[in-house]
Amino acid sequence: KYNLTLKDNAKIEQYGDRSNNEALSLRGDGQYAQIDDQLFKDAGDSFTLEFASETRHDDSGKFFSFIVGKDGSNDANTTDQANANKYLMFYNSKTAIKGVISNNNWGNEQGSKVTVSGNDNSWADYKIVVDGTNLAVFRNNALIIFKANTGIKMSDLGATTAYIGKSFYSVDEYWNGAMDDIKVYRGADLTMPTAVAISGTGVVNNK
């Protein structure tokens, strides 16, 4: 019951090594897709987003692969929180993955960016889990980003505008990559470890 709207010549087409299946194809030239606002409004504060993705984008730091939240059209002034961009963002480059949530532009991003190998023009499966104020990102079933107690829930963002390939910042690039098999589940299955045993040289009394 939710639509994916293609913008500015974005295409659903056969794509590379995706077993001849069709995927959302973006070439970084003003192309993007928009998901109905209602989807993430219905998903609420705890949900799981799964998708496959391939990227051809250099690690410029100035693009978003996926974003949902409030497009405040405020690119620089992080002191103006009322009009700030507020978002959950995923960033997929040739050499790095980024997953963050923010209620006040880039200055309050909670999450992290990690280096990955074998990501240039290669498909991988991703899962973004939002569990209240906890945020996790998995790549090929391996946990690569985790931030507990971000202090920000999805309902704090104030809107659920969702783009694939387009940033809320007007100076940013459009993403050059593809997505397929997009699924959103209401609810999050995120089990937190309560204790970790450590051993080895230099460890005394488990410290």
Score class of each variant (00 low, 15 high):
N140Y: 11
M154V: 05
F90Q: 13
I101L: 10
F146D: 01
V68W: 00
G28S: 12
D120M: 07
M179V: 13
T194C: 00
L190Y: 10
F47T: 03
N92A: 08
L88P: 08
Q31F: 07
K166P: 04
D29K: 14
K113M: 10
A33K: 05
D120L: 00
T115V: 00
N21W: 08
L39W: 10
R56Q: 11
K113A: 12
S170L: 01
G107I: 02
F47Q: 04
G111P: 05
G187I: 11
K70G: 04
L190R: 07
K207E: 15
D71Y: 13
F168N: 04
L4G: 10
I144R: 12
Q38S: 15
N74R: 08
G200T: 13
T150K: 09
D156G: 04
G151R: 15
D181F: 11
N9Q: 07
Q81Y: 11
L6R: 08
G200P: 13
D131G: 15
G16M: 03
L26F: 06
K62C: 09
F51K: 00
G202F: 08
D75C: 03
G61Y: 08
A148G: 14
K207H: 14
A148W: 03
G69M: 11
D42R: 02
A10C: 02
V204S: 10
D189T: 15
T95I: 12
G72T: 11
P193W: 07
